[in-house]
Design a protein around this nucleic acid. Structure first.
Lengths: 339, 339
DNA sequence: AATCAAAATGCAATCGATTGCACAAATAAT
DNA sequence: ATTATTTGTGCAATCGATTGCATTTTGATT
């Protein structure tokens, strides 16, 4: 009903018969203003319920105190925890976090990045969509030296900071694990080659096979979108091969879960008939039966460090330090599905 | 390295020897400017890589085109999907979404709300923390008629829009379900009474008991924080009673999962020895063994509608429509843990 | 009381876009 | 050709905070 009119420094100035600049300085505890005046001003500000207009201050300072985040989907646990990490750190530094999701669509991603760009975020943290085969939108940031950082899924052609895990090594390790438990015919359900993470996992897998002298049988390498929808079919194709695998490294936990359910339906024993592993350690992975072997990625940590890194760049604009690639460790989690 | 200097409407104006106001109008396709001029200006803007300064425009218009969101934790599936819904709708209307999490701490919540307030978000969507027993911070918004909306967990003393599910009815239904499958001694592990949702679930439970003529045995009602940490103990207390329950309605899925694991360890058969149900339908609930009966809440829908509602209020500031309480339906999901 | 340094405050421009009102140009009407 | 309209542009104030520089006040010193 009643619209309380907002108090500005000018109102305070009038009330106190001093100038707006003095008020401004007093409010920021500038030592050029006498202690007495500062107190009076701050007192009055409190009394009248003054709130600084961040918009005006931002305009003046050309900073928005905001970092933008673009992820494929907010409701995927890995990304949600990364965002949680970003927010936690950003908060300690007084930065806002604007989030947007690409839904794994390039067009939406482009649009989100443009929006963040025109909203003048001070920096952007992104993890690219499954369709991203173009980098023009990211150039908006990199070419103007607006801090940009990719985590997990990066755009290889853009020169900027990155925080990743070693997917190659992780893929290698989990494959080696399957080998060491006795699997001889190991298949892999991979994700889109376009994304570095899936490519690396696949290559780690291939390297492990070759290091241990195991062959890559025909049809043992399936590329899918790693969705709930694609999972059952891909796994079915594998198990329908003349000689089906005795171990399958699935590109993510969702696909491994599909495989698990397929096995239950078709009376295949896991891990006796076929050992299974996923990737990412989703919340459900530890509680399904049999529990799912997987690779744990430090989502929260990645987000937290991403925020640290980008805010550091923002606060040291002249920083000419070369771009870094930070690789965080993963953890091989062996559970019943491959024990 | 090279800092590209930003182009303003004044630069465009100079280049074209026209006034800044004309440029401004031309860029917004104002019909007062001739088609020819509009084209020339837009052409030039493109050529010089002009980007409007949203900060300046926002200052002028006193709008930030931003909505703030405060949730207990971003990485909880229910909240993540709500945020996802909020973002999806907000995006279609050109609104930014600033998120922050209270970590279920009142102090952090207060701080987040203050930050959003001083950042002049046009509206705020919140779900309160487990500790929130004070509403001063929310008054900042409600008293100035800045649109405010609670979803799921609301602050009862604040008069504003709410989007909730009927926790009372849901609690009633899931308890009735346990009764209908033959349970006679039904216990409940409740959440903090401070939160409407937990209180309502509990009361629905009590009503069902009384409607069907079942007693509430001593110790059958446990109040906990519903965390992974509290779960095992609370369930242990129940099962150590002289006459343990044959059905337990857990206040959330996390607690039900703890119960499930407790039963596995102690060779209790679910649902034969004790039937279990949770609440919320977490991603893991459908895949544990036995699968978990629960109540599905439409997280994404709640977020989406929350965004619709609040943006509608923002765009119709003079809207004197009474505050609404929108109740979305839940779905009782019966699975093996209580079949 | 006069002089000077130090401390406190004020002036006015700036950040970039928007907009009511005034003015100029182009076209229509007489 | 002259006046009345319509159409197109420009001027200048505004949004609210910040800051370099100028000015005033205070207090110390001789």
């Amino acid at each position: 009903m009643k619209k309380k009119q907002e108090i500005t420094i000018h109102n305070l100035a009038n009330e106190l018969n001093i100038s707006a600049s003095t008020v401004s300085r007093a409010l920021s505890d500038n030592s050029r203003i006498s202690k007495k005046t500062r107190l009076i001003v701050q007192q009055k500000a409190l009394e009248l319920g003054y709130r600084p207009n961040v918009l005006a201050a931002n305009l003046r300072s050309k900073k928005s105190n905001t970092i933008g985040v673009v992820v494929p989907r907010i409701d995927r646990y890995f990304f949600a925890s990364a965002i949680s990490g970003i927010e936690d750190y950003a908060w300690t530094k007084g930065f806002n976090v604007i989030i947007s999701q690409s839904n794994d669509l390039l067009a939406k991603e482009v649009s989100c990045v443009h929006t963040l760009f025109s909203n003048r975020v001070d920096g952007m943290i992104a993890s690219i969509s499954m369709q991203t085969n173009d980098d023009k939108h990211f150039r908006l940031f990199s070419e103007r030296n607006i801090p940009l950082l990719f985590f997990d899924r990066f755009c290889p052609s853009i020169d900027c900071d990155r925080i990743v895990v070693d997917d190659y090594e992780s893929g290698y390790n989990i494959t080696s694990h399957l080998i060491s438990r006795g699997c001889k015919r190991i298949a892999h359900i991979a994700g889109p080659e376009l994304l570095n993470i899936y490519k690396d996992r696949k290559e780690g897998y291939l390297k492990a096979l070759s290091d241990f002298g195991l062959p890559l049988y025909d049809g043992y390498l399936q590329e899918t979108r790693l969705t709930k929808e694609d999972g059952p079919q891909a796994f079915h194709r594998l198990m329908s091969l003349p000689v089906p695998p005795d171990g399958v490294f699935c590109g993510n936990d969702t696909t491994a879960l599909c495989a698990l359910e397929y096995c239950k339906k078709n009376n295949l024993k896991v891990p006796q008939d076929v050992a299974l592993t996923g990737f990412s350690d989703e919340p459900f992975s530890s509680v399904v039966t049999p529990s799912l072997s997987t690779v744990r990625q430090p989502g929260y940590q990645m987000g937290f460090q991403a925020a640290q890194k980008i805010i550091h760049r923002i606060e040291n604009a002249n920083l000419t330090v070369l771009f870094e690639k930070i690789v965080l460790p993963t953890q091989l989690i062996v559970r019943d599905s491959s024990r």
